[in-house]
Nucleic acid binder design. Structure first.
Lengths: 326, 326
DNA sequence: TTGTATGCGTTATCAT
DNA sequence: ATGATAACGCATACAA
């Protein structure tokens, strides 16, 4: 590996001078600058970020913690984060937490050990000690905590919209899937929907679920139609579950949306590809990722940051699993 | 931040001794070890990986380069990689290349700048200078290059299977989608299919495509049924494109699989959720990721590694877009 | 305008 | 069995 020393030798200057031209700091004569740049090009030199990081006590690395990149909602988030960071010269250390606190702590620790300059986390434990003690900027993504910087979509409103739309389109006996208890955004959207259901005096049933995995979704779907045969509207906790419901309805010979309406949540790419395509509440995942990255960069680079809590709007995406308004 | 110096002071020993207990290297008295461990626990100390990395000239970081995490095939790969690496104490620096060589080089450079100890890459340019000059182990994932370590599924065989199965199930006028020219695995599967088509003397048409994106897939679907009205079997370049074909067939009122059979490629989670669910060629993505990580670790930790080219089997997954064998 | 020297936190060598 | 110290590659304070 070629080091700053090699460059200095080749250019016939001291390492300090080389450092100056690299970092455009301090004075340096035009001619010597040229010599140095020449040497840098010839050797195809680029500075060792590890040494820099050690000296400055901070790197260009940012830690990203997501529950599970295999859940189609998260790649979009990740991509948004990565794009903006990359454009700004930052790089990503990435980990899946599986909503598991231990795994999460382990990652946070190695983030710190690697001098990451900030972290973006979709955690279920934003109030844990680990986060409070962190001395680097952190933004919670798709999660919130008090006054902490965070980027999320309005889950409660999303739930309200879902309930309103499905009622508006004529469902009378609604079943609502309650997402995993430990996942805050899932509870928010559930609460929002319940509110509207109550306000409008609708009769409804609730099915508890404990994960968002493809594997288990089918189970809830079966349970739903098993327990609540006369359901004519389903508010699912996310698109994955909604898809399973749709499949099960299909299997049972129920017509969607004529017999049962279904509303998903997230608007993952999947939802537009189903037949019938899935009506859903859209979260602007890619934008959320970008916003989170932007916020983190501001937190890192500026002294004072306003608007460190960013709430993005959700919206109803009308597709084919809901009827058209009469 | 608490450093090894702090621990040394608290434990009343030298930094050398602390280092010894941390790394379990050299002799250290049981009692002093206890004192040191005590201090480490009290201070919740963990060593600065950056300093370690600087001294040792290598980190515990591994670079992972994927085309686009937003394409549902790649999260599975990524997850496989991450799981195995994480279990072995390695961490991931992650980047999307968008199949763009410049972006890729940029990432490889920053990988090196950060002393990554190995790289896993799904690149279209495995023979580029950058990779040849890399002095750290690299494994190509879902890609191959000569004798270089790599993990991939047998694309040619996958293509052959797809063609065989669709013919076996009665399609006579097959249209085959040729994936992006610059993506090697896409061409492999295409070649494999063509071989069988030729061998069996089938008539077939080819549609060129230039990306795997959701956005453009619909375009090719339209083109396909537009140009080749009498097609009764479609071999798609991957599940995304197959899904678009399925949608378009549906829109045109063609019955699947009665009028048209469709075979996808990859077996992304998506494919089992469609209606009709998608028959496809399965690539064991998660396992490929794990294998790649395992191979890389062997490359890193062992002097000599056999079987550094790992080919995983593909298989036909029979679902509802193909007819049952007569 | 440039160079020398120091320290970032760690590991390893060499004494003791 | 333990400690003092050089070195990893870089950026900066200070001298010149």
């Amino acid at each position: 590996m070629t080091t700053i020393k090699d460059i200095a030798k080749i250019a016939g200057v001291s390492v300090a001078t080389v450092s100056r031209v690299i970092n455009e700091s301090g004075y340096v004569n035009v001619d010597t600058r040229k010599k140095v740049e020449e040497a840098i090009n010839v050797m195809n030199y680029s500075p060792n970020e590890v040494a820099r990081s050690l000296y400055k006590r901070k790197s260009k690395l940012i830690g990203l913690l997501l529950p599970d990149i295999t859940n189609p909602f998260f790649p979009q988030l990740a991509r948004g984060v990565e794009d903006l960071l990359q454009e700004n010269g930052y790089r990503l250390i990435f980990g899946n937490s599986d909503e598991n606190e231990d795994k999460e702590l382990d990652y946070i620790r190695t983030f710190v050990q690697n001098n990451v300059i900030g972290v973006i986390s979709s955690t279920n434990f934003p109030d844990s000690d680990t986060y409070h003690k962190l001395k680097i900027p952190i933004v919670f993504l798709d999660r919130t905590s008090n006054e902490s910087p965070s980027v999320y979509a309005d889950g409660r409103e999303g739930g309200r919209i879902a309930a309103r739309e499905i009622i508006l389109r004529g469902s009378k006996r609604i079943t609502i899937l309650q997402g995993p208890a430990h996942i805050k955004p899932a509870q928010d959207r559930f609460q929002g929907a319940i509110e509207v259901l109550e306000e409008l005096g609708m009769t409804y049933d609730v099915i508890q679920t404990s994960s968002f995995s493809y594997g288990e979704a089918g189970k809830w779907a079966k349970e739903l139609f098993d327990k609540h045969t006369d359901t004519d509207g389903v508010i699912a906790s996310n698109d994955i579950v909604a898809t399973a419901i749709l499949q099960e309805a299909h299997r049972l010979g129920k017509a969607v949306p004529q017999d049962v309406q279904i509303i998903g949540y997230d608007d993952t790419p999947l939802s537009s590809l189903l037949s019938p395509s899935l009506s859903t509440i859209r979260q602007p995942a890619y934008d959320m990722g970008r916003e989170a990255a932007g916020l983190l960069i501001r937190l890192i680079e500026q002294d004072k940051v306003e608007d460190s809590i960013i709430q993005l709007p959700v919206s109803f995406v009308e597709r084919e699993t809901t009827r058209t308004i009469i």
